[in-house]
Write a protein that binds this DNA or RNA. Sequence first.
DNA 1: CATGATCACTGACCGTAGTCAGGTATCAAC
DNA 2: GTTGATACCTGACTACGGTCAGTGATCATG
Lengths: 291, 291
Amino acid sequence: MPPDPAARIRRFHRAVTREAGALDASFLGRGRPLGVARVLWQIPRQSGDLTAIRAGLGLDSGQFSRILRSLEREGLITLARHEGDGRRRLARLTGAGADEVALYNRLSDDSAKGLVAAAPNSAVFLAAMDLIATVLNRGQTEVRLADPDDPAAQACLQAYFDLLVAQIDGMRHDHLPLPDPHADRYRPPNGAFLIAWSDDLAIGCVSLRTLVPGLGEVKRLWVAPDARGQGLARRLMLAVEEQARKLGMTQLKLDTNAGLTDAIALYQKTGWSPTQAYSGFPSTHWFAKSL
Amino acid sequence: MPPDPAARIRRFHRAVTREAGALDASFLGRGRPLGVARVLWQIPRQSGDLTAIRAGLGLDSGQFSRILRSLEREGLITLARHEGDGRRRLARLTGAGADEVALYNRLSDDSAKGLVAAAPNSAVFLAAMDLIATVLNRGQTEVRLADPDDPAAQACLQAYFDLLVAQIDGMRHDHLPLPDPHADRYRPPNGAFLIAWSDDLAIGCVSLRTLVPGLGEVKRLWVAPDARGQGLARRLMLAVEEQARKLGMTQLKLDTNAGLTDAIALYQKTGWSPTQAYSGFPSTHWFAKSL
DNA sequence: CATGATCACTGACCGTAGTCAGGTATCAAC
DNA sequence: GTTGATACCTGACTACGGTCAGTGATCATG
């Protein structure tokens, strides 16, 4: 119904930059320049790692240094030597600093609450925001090792199981308990759990466990619907193969179900060969790959 | 599945400000400060009306004046006296200016194309952007008179008819032809067509026609699903009543269908009284109101 | 024709963001 | 120990956005 895509995106862009400006202005409301506020706000998120904060905000080293000194002068942070690397320093919030961060968090939360309340359907609205953020974050997706008991890992598995139920005929949810009582199988040195991150949201996962020494099994490959079509499944598979090599495995197996057609196509394209059955329902296809 | 709403909105905000920054940077790529580029870009959109451009961008009068002179020095615009108001001036693009604007448009279109291509499902992605823009633009919605043959009006009616088909049992789309062969009935002095604008997207409409001199009929009240819950239908009804008064009408009628429960509730709350039937299917309810 | 409001322009000023060229201390590698 | 890279700091500089007070021209109003 509406006009051409470029016009719609421009409208979105106008709406969103105005909103961003309003939020920035509320950050400025604490009497501190925006750059300084952003650094302060990032310190707890990156647990004080100066390099990570600077890289995340894309700041010049000189400017960053000045911002830190300004925060120090305000008594909001203290800078301590990094243990283990004398070149680096670690930022730590003082009590007053923590209070300020909490205040900024409240400002941002309030604006978030107002937004959600204004939407006709908050679940749909938040899902739309997730989708857009995921698309905009494409190319910034990072695959990292995670603990299988991490809440983000649990969320991935939950989504994965939901997908199985939806796509596999005869599948019932209670076939796969959560949290996984066998989490330890997916921790080094037995196995691994990998999560694909889009900023701080988990949008994909894959896991690896040992069947017998030297032989691993890849399980639970999942990619969020919003993130499909970016080659993320392939990246996760490459990453899990690398983990397998690091754990000294020389061969991998996996099982899957005919309902997961995209996954099967991917395995066939990336060096996996059909192999004989080694597991039961819901599996209908089995693959193996030598490392 | 994902974490708390505030965190999701913050992630959205981060993703979107980074994207906006990237687009701004590409605007800067033409060797012109962003503020200057934005003004140049807005001139054709507002057909050179300096006051409208300045208000739209929220610029200080002094700063704006300097930006205009910089564009003049570059040979991209000429400033002419406003006919009718000697205090005001009118900006007009030169040939070189029009070329620059076209180039900026291409830059923005390219970035839009890239975005749409990156989404797993472009229709869903664009709909998500429309929803978010509509929610963010809440409070900036404007109701204005429109010509019933305007493409935006046609788009509204199309959406309205689609809604009727979806909500009314037995309704078929071909009952209501488009474009409307009787558009003239909805133009002054016979009637009126009102559109609610969210930026440059039409998100609601209502129309008015004359039944007999002094007696009007309100028809085709529509609000986009994204924009529900903001009291927009009420605003449209108030606006159309005002138009009716301006056209010298003293009484209004309308018909509606039991499937449109929200509309019926609104009429009952805003001074409309049930009246006897004056039209057939798909109507099931009839209301009247004296002005 | 006086009044007050509006529109546009000018000059002076400020804070912030951002760049650049050094400089110092530390680390890892040979 | 030497070398080169890394992490952080400093000082000098610029551009840009934004504010403010004051000016002159024009308009609508009574």
